[in-house]
Design a binder for these strands. Structure first.
Lengths: 344, 344
DNA sequence: CTGAAAGCGCTAACAC
DNA sequence: GTGTTAGCGCTTTCAG
């Protein structure tokens, strides 16, 4: 492997000139520049980036803490990040953390051990040690999607509470009065915010909140399926189910259809996220669309600004959402009508 | 940030001893060792891993070239890799290449610029330059899932041809005689191998291959949907559709149901991969299960063996598959029976 | 078992 | 515009 010294010798210049030709070409005369360039060509020189990073103290790498890559919403967010990072000359290091604080802390250490310049956290949790967090100024981090209420770093999120209220109102407008909610993981702020939005809409419509209509989930297909079975086993089942994400909704739909109920005639189902499968479920799912790629873009762009010292306050960016009405939600069945009314 | 020198001073030893305490503790007396350890504790010393990697020439990083992270099958493969890599002390750098050879080459350069020790390619393409590939010995790479027929590096795959033949035979056994095939991307060997398996089974059953039953796709939901619409518009539609992946199948099912056909009574549909959604489609999808996480494990483990010089020949590992029969496939409708036969 | 010393390949003052 | 030089923080001989 050729080093910078080989190039310098071949070109008959100093190593500094070679370095400059690569880093700040304008500070080298065109003549020497071309001589150096051709020497690089001839030797097949590739700078040892580990040395560059070590010496310059800049890795141009960002670590991304994602609870699980096997989630279509996160996959879209990551695609957005990769695009934005590549544009700015940064490389992404993906950490599949399973939401485990220990694993997160390990990855956060990469920032402190000079393996990465900064970090993007997709979960509401600060992976840095208390000491590090106590240090002055912004943390080299951006918190996106599921955010912490902190001034330690910029955040990118959407108004989950308002979005959930919007969906709940959509259901209320359709005449539903008993609306079940299948929640996400207990510990997630997303779960709580969406629950709050659901309650907001209920309250505004003058409907008493009934906690027996709340069901636990964890954002997986299976959890949706199981929760829906519990819902159907209720003495007085609701006429609509709002699921805190699309996977849950698709799982729930399967249980509902297995029970012989029609969607939306007998039971409306709504999701959240608008993953690709939402448009291809049967029936296509009414959901809340999130600008996933935009989350990624914004997070990377904010992080780079923090790292380059362009911002010193922690902005809180709120991205827009959109209610997507497809065919899984419809008017509430007439009270007292049997679930077994024939389709035609 | 404390350096190794700070620790050495505080502990009253040389930097070499500190380094040894960390790298080969057994070569340091228990007394000094504990003194060094407590000095590390006190100073909050974290080795600068960039320096370590630079100096040692080993990055303990592996780059993974994945056509798209927004694919559930790849997501599972990556999870498996991450697990195996973490176990061996390696970090994964994910490259979303969109199947673009230019982007792949850029990532491959990371290996040559000492940013990563090796590379895992999930697409049948050699991202290294011809010169690099021509160098003696194995390339620091493993090719998994969609593989190249090469002796330049180990490969991990499954017998796609046999798997496709198995699925086709399943359909033939159900009495289907006209079976459409919705293919993957034209350029992918996977597409060709699965097509070959389909043809094998047909031939073995003594059925003439009919190229008008072949439809183009690209492994997406939408492509499946569109191909299915074309299939239904045929003068004499088939009674079964074999899709080269599950997304395609789920997209196709939507088009088929929209057209008023019942699955599987009027039309059987089969997929490939067994993604999580396959069990939650309506009806649940018959498919070929691949051991996705196992692909990841095996790829990492082989790559580490190559990097550590444990192997010098390129093994070709073939992982097993399994036919999962759910409810999207059933007996072929009686010839001549109308598609519009009522369900009951 | 421990210390001294020589770099790894590169960047960045600082001179000229 | 270019060269000289001093390290970045660490590992690793080589002595002792």
């Amino acid at each position: 492997m050729a080093t910078i010294r080989d190039v310098a010798e071949l070109a008959g210049v100093s190593v500094a000139t070679v370095s400059r030709t690569l880093q700040q070409p304008e500070r080298v005369s065109p003549k020497t520049r071309s001589r150096v360039l051709s020497a690089i060509e001839q030797t097949g020189y590739q700078p040892n980036l580990m040395a560059v990073k070590f010496r310059s103290g800049k890795t141009h790498s960002l670590v991304v803490l994602v609870p699980t890559v096997a989630n279509l919403f996160f996959a879209r967010v990551i695609s957005g990040m990769q695009e934005a990072a590549a544009q700015r000359g940064y490389t992404l290091l993906l950490g599949n953390t399973l939401g485990n604080p220990q694993i997160e802390a390990d990855y956060a250490r990469m920032v402190q051990t000079a393996q990465a310049d900064g970090l993007i956290q997709l979960r509401a949790s600060n992976p840095f040690s208390p000491e590090k967090s106590a240090s002055a100024g912004l943390l080299p981090m951006v918190n996106a999607c599921e955010v912490l209420n902190t001034s330690l770093c910029p955040t990118v999120t959407l108004d989950n509470r308002l979005a959930a209220a919007t969906m709940t109102r959509h259901l209320l407008d359709l005449g539903h009065r008993r609306i079940a909610l299948i929640k996400g993981p207990q510990a997630s702020p997303l779960t709580q915010e969406r629950l709050a939005g659901y309650q907001d809409a209920l309250q505004q419509a003058g409907i008493d909140f009934d906690s027996s209509l709340l069901f636990d989930g964890d954002f997986t297909l299976q959890a949706g399926y199981e929760a829906a079975r519990k819902i159907l086993a209720q003495p007085q089942p609701p006429t609509a189910v709002f699921c805190e994400n699309d996977e849950t909704a698709i799982g729930a739909m399967q249980a509902i259809k297995e029970a012989g109920l029609r969607i939306p005639q007998d039971m409306s189902v709504a999701g959240f996220d608008d993953i690709a499968f939402a448009a291809y479920s049967d029936p296509p799912l009414t959901t809340i669309a999130q600008p996933a790629e935009e989350f990624g873009h914004t997070a990377v762009s904010l992080l780079v600004e923090v790292l380059t010292g362009k911002i010193s306050k922690a902005p809180k960016v709120i991205l827009p959402f959109e209610l997507i009405v497809r065919h899984s939600t419809g008017p509430a069945p007439i009270a007292g009508a049997s679930y077994l009314t024939p389709a035609l």
